[in-house]
Design a protein around this nucleic acid. Structure first.
Length: 271
DNA sequence: CCCGATTCCTGTAGGC
DNA sequence: TGCCTACAGGAATCGG
């Protein structure tokens, strides 16, 4: 499941193959994604030169000289570089044929992903305009969480997964960050103190940064072939470990549904 | 405005 | 062994 670290890993892996290249042809075999891909997308991007790859939240941005392509990997999407004559497999929905002879290939079994084309300012785009700060930037810190949470009754886990508060914290890393910070996921966001939010902000940064590092270890393989994210191999302390001993106290990890999402925590050391 | 519930989709895991 | 169902997950959107 692509969380922020995998999108960042994808961006870093693709950039050397895409930046400076021209899109000779775009093949769309499946238009029905999260939102329908524009009927004229292929025409719009044809002949465009890809200038720069960027990331905002979990959106992968590809700036060209004709407009900007915005990818979202949803929860099962992946982008990789394949050889120019490699035939598409099941769920390989979109190819961009590059002037290098290679193809950029989008694969997405569950079709929660998206591909958009915009020609106006990205910052004013509806999907981007209301997003919170990047978790790894200096704009994101404990005070931001503290101030934004006053008066909020939603569980802190839902709060940190709200992209208007901070982007890029998915279900897995929300549990992990709250575990690291020793905060119970069900606590109403408005009841958490300033110092505890400082710990939480640090935990979010630490967890995401280490996941990006882990993704980075498979960067070489990524381009070569299987596109499998490496960070799943990383040690998860709470997520998916219901019934197992807590890694840092004598407690036992418990599972609870919060905001319609599975949530894992230690009832003994997360208060 | 705030927050919980619902929705899109299909591979995988678990139950019988 | 094979069928069937439940579940997973990001995030927009709906309903209260």
């Amino acid at each position: 499941m692509p969380e922020l670290p995998e999108v960042e890993t994808t961006k870093r892996g693709l950039a050397p193959h895409l930046e400076g290249r021209r899109v000779k042809l775009c093949e769309i075999r499946q238009h029905s994604l999260r939102w329908p891909v524009d009927a004229d997308f292929a025409d719009k991007i044809q002949g465009a030169r890809i200038q720069h790859l960027d990331r905002r939240a979990k959106y992968l941005l590809m700036q060209t000289d004709k407009g900007m392509a915005i990818w979202h990997l949803g929860m099962s999407g992946s982008l990789r570089i394949v050889g120019g004559s490699e035939p598409p497999q099941k769920h390989d929905h979109i190819d961009w044929l590059l002037d290098s002879g290679q193809r950029l290939r989008f694969h997405d079994p569950r079709r929660f992903g998206a591909l958009l084309w915009i020609t106006d300012d990205i910052a004013s785009h509806e999907l981007i305009a209301h997003l919170g700060p990047e978790p790894l930037s200096d704009d994101f810190h404990g005070d931001h969480l503290y101030l934004a949470s006053r008066g909020r009754k939603a569980p802190v886990k839902s709060f940190i997964m709200d992209g208007r508060i901070v982007v890029g914290v998915g279900n897995i890393y929300a549990s992990e960050a709250l575990f690291m910070a020793g905060i119970r996921p069900s606590t109403p966001a408005g009841k958490i103190s300033r110092p505890r939010y400082q710990r939480l902000a640090e935990a979010i940064k630490t967890v995401l940064a280490s996941a990006i590092e882990q993704g980075g270890t498979t960067l070489r393989d990524f381009v070569g072939g299987d596109g499998k994210p490496g960070y799943f191999a990383q040690q998860l302390n709470a997520y998916g470990r219901a019934g197992q001993p807590c890694p840092r106290c004598p407690g036992t990890i418990r599972e609870q549904i919060i905001g319609q999402r599975n949530t894992f925590f230690c009832p003994r050391c997360q208060r």
